[in-house]
Simulated scan of single mutants.
Amino acid sequence: MTDVELDRDDCTVLSGTLDDPYTGDTIAFTRGRDTSDDVQIDHVVALADAWRAGADRLTDDERLVLANDEHNLVAVDGPTNNRKADRTAERWLPPAAAPTRPPRSRSRPTTSSRSPAPSTTLSPPR
Rank of each mutant, 00 (worst) to 15 (best):
P79Y: 01
D37K: 04
V44H: 01
T23V: 09
D49E: 12
H71Y: 01
F29V: 08
D38T: 10
N72A: 02
G32F: 07
L18P: 07
D60A: 14
N72M: 04
L14N: 11
W51F: 13
S15H: 00
A75R: 04
D34C: 09
N81I: 06
A53D: 06
D42M: 01
H71F: 04
T30K: 12
A67Q: 12
D25W: 12
L47C: 09
V74P: 09
L66H: 09
D25S: 14
D77P: 02
G24I: 14
E70Y: 07
I27R: 05
V65Q: 10
G24R: 11
A50W: 06
T26Y: 07
L58R: 01
G54P: 01
P21Q: 01
L14T: 03
S15W: 03
V39K: 03
Q40I: 11
F29W: 10
T30N: 07
D56W: 14
H71W: 04
R63A: 13
L14A: 04
L66T: 11
D42V: 04
L58M: 14
T80G: 06
T59D: 09
G54S: 00
N68M: 11
R57I: 03
L66M: 12
N68Q: 12
V76P: 02
T26E: 15
L18G: 01
V65I: 15
D69T: 00
D69P: 09
L18H: 05
L64V: 09
D20L: 03
E70F: 09
D77K: 04
I27F: 03
A53Y: 05
A46K: 00
A75P: 14
V39E: 09
S15V: 11
D69F: 02
N81S: 00
D19F: 05
A53G: 10
D38C: 02
T59S: 15
V65Y: 07
H71Q: 11
H43K: 08
T23R: 11
Y22H: 11
G16Q: 12
L66V: 15
H43V: 14
T23Q: 08
G32A: 11
L47M: 11
T26I: 15
D49Q: 14
T23G: 06
T26V: 15
G32M: 07
W51H: 05
L73K: 00
S36N: 13
I27E: 03
D60E: 15
T80Q: 08
Y22L: 07
T17P: 03
L14R: 10
L58N: 02
Y22G: 02
A28D: 12
H71N: 02
T59G: 15
R33P: 10
L58I: 08
S36Q: 12
R57C: 00
A67Y: 12
D42C: 12
G16V: 13
R52H: 03
V65W: 05
L18I: 03
L64T: 14
V44R: 08
L73F: 04
D77G: 03
T30F: 07
G24M: 05
T59W: 08
D61R: 10
N68D: 12
N82I: 14
V74M: 09
H71I: 10
N68L: 10
T80M: 06
R31H: 05
